[in-house]
Design a protein around this nucleic acid. Structure first.
Lengths: 233, 233
DNA sequence: CGTGCTGTTGAACTGGGTCAACCATCGTGG
DNA sequence: CCACGATGGTTGACCCAGTTCAACAGCACG
C-alpha cells in the first residue's frame, strides 16, 4: 500500500526489515483522486479506512464559532487519520488542498498487520507521536508569536517537512495554498496575512508566486520564526 | 506502578484482563515529591523514565521568544511524558503546579512490558492519542476563540478531565492555578486574564477563590466556551 | 461575458497589551 | 514580634497590532 515515502520514513527511523517493508507494501489499498476543497472525511464521521497521501496535500479544518480553524496540513507520505484506527470519530474535516491523490487502507487490514507485529505497531505509534509534536509546535505558535513570525514559522515547517520527503528543490517547493489557508492556520484575518506576506517579501525572505514558494534567505527566515526542525523526527 | 486512576482509565476503554492489570500494577516504580514550580524534566533532556501523577498537577511549558507558553496541563492519572518512550527528548519543560506526588517507571521496564503485549501497547498508544486530541483542541482555542471563551474553555476542559478521575465534587474542584498560569496557557496577558475571570464571575458562571474553582452554571459556561467533552475519550 | 475567487489597498475601529500603581497575604529573618 | 520583600490579585490610562469594512483589479472558468 502506502507511498514509498511513508515506508521510507518508517524505515529511516525504526529500521524495518525487508519482510516488514514487504508486508506494508502488500496491504491492499485503493487509490483515489481528490479535488481542491473536497472533503475526504467529515468531522464526526467514524472512519473505517485510513488515508495516506500519494501526491498533493490535505488539511484538517474545524469550525469554531464563526471562524474556521485549520489544525494541520498533510503532505505526501503522511497518514492524516492514522489515529482513527484507535479513536474512531474524526474531530475535524479532512479537506483536499489542490488536486490530490490519496490511497486508503481498511482499518481491519491495517489492524491485522499491526496485531502480528509489535515492531510495526511501534513504528506507526511513533508516526502519530510526531504529528502530536507538530501540534504542540502549533500551540506555541498560535499562543505566543506575533503575526510575522507566525506566518514565517508555518512556511518553515512546511519547507522542512517537504524537504524530508524530497519535495524541495533548491529552497523552493510547490504548494497551492491561498492566503485564506494561511489565515485559517495562523488565526489571523486574510487582510493581515496579506500584509504580513508582503512584509516577508519586502524583507527579501521569501518569494511566493502562485503555488511556488521559495525561501530566499532560509537562515534569516528561520531566525525570525524562531524555528528549529528537530521536533519533526 | 501507576496510579489506580491510570489503570482504571485504560481498563475503561480497552478492557484489560486481570492479568494485564496485574502486570501494569507490578511495574517497579519510585514515588517522589515535587514542589510548586519545580522542573521535573527539562526541555531537551532525554528522558530515561516515564512520569505518572499520583496527586497534584504538572504542566508543560516552553519559552518562545520572550513569552512562556504552556502546552498542556496534567492531572492525577496522566502520564505526561509517555511519548518520550519512543521520541526521546522532551520538547518542553515539565513543571510542578502546587505540591505534587509523581511516580516514575524506567523506560526499559515499560518497554519490556509493552514488548510482550500488543494489547497493552495499543492501550498506551491510545493514551497518547487522547493527549493529541487535547492538543488539537488547544490549537482551535488559541487560534479561533476570543479571550472570554478561551478562558472558559480551559476551565471546562480541566473540569471534564478531573471529573473522569473522580476529582470533581458537586461542580467544584481543587487546582492551585494562578492567573499567570491561565495567561500562559491561553496566550493572553495576566492583566487581561484578570479582567476576563472577573467577567466570568460577574456573569455568575464560576466562583474561583484560592485553589477552589466552582462551575456555578456549567451548561452556560460550556455554551460560552463552545465546549463539548467527547474528544476526551 | 458575467460570476466568483484571490490578491491588494486604504481607512476607521477595537480587543487586548503595556505600563504603572496599589493592596493583601505570607513566609522569613533580624 | 515586627519589618521586609516577594508573590498574586486588582485597577486605571493609554497604546497598538490586528480586525473589519469597503472597494477594486486580475484571472480562471462555465
Amino acid at each position: 500500500m502506502p507511498h514509498p515515502k511513508f515506508i521510507a520514513r518508517l524505515q529511516a527511523i525504526e529500521g524495518l526489515s525487508e519482510d516488514e517493508r514487504r508486508q506494508i507494501a502488500g496491504l491492499p489499498s485503493t487509490l483515489r483522486q481528490v479535488a481542491d476543497g473536497e472533503i475526504v472525511l467529515r468531522q464526526g464521521e467514524a472512519a473505517t479506512r485510513c488515508v495516506f497521501i500519494v501526491s498533493g496535500f490535505l488539511y484538517q479544518s474545524r469550525i469554531v464559532g464563526d471562524r474556521s480553524q485549520t489544525l494541520a496540513f498533510h503532505i505526501p507520505g503522511d497518514m492524516p487519520c492514522l489515529h482513527t484506527l484507535l479513536v474512531s470519530p474524526m474531530d475535524a474535516d479532512l479537506v483536499g488542498l489542490g488536486p490530490t491523490i490519496v490511497g486508503t487502507v481498511a482499518h481491519s487490514q491495517l489492524r491485522q498487520l499491526l496485531d502480528s507485529s509489535i515492531h510495526l505497531t511501534r513504528a506507526f505509534w511513533r508516526e502519530t507521536l510526531i504529528d502530536a509534536a507538530v501540534s504542540r509546535q502549533w500551540i506555541a505558535r498560535l499562543g505566543a508569536q506575533a503575526a510575522l513570525p507566525k506566518v514565517a514559522h508555518l512556511i518553515c515547517e512546511l519547507a522542512a517537512r517537504l524537504e524530508i520527503v524530497g519535495l524541495v528543490k533548491g529552497n523552493s517547493f510547490q504548494m497551492p495554498m491561498t492566503q485564506r489557508h494561511v489565515a485559517d492556520a495562523c488565526g489571523l484575518s486574510i487582510v493581515h496575512v496579506n500584509r504580513t506576506i508582503q512584509e516577508l517579501r519586502h524583507r527579501g525572505l521569501i518569494a511566493w508566486d502562485g503555488s511556488e514558494i521559495e525561501l530566499l534567505q532560509p537562515d534569516e527566515l528561520r531566525q525570525l520564526a524562531d524555528f528549529t526542525p528537530d521536533y519533526l523526527g
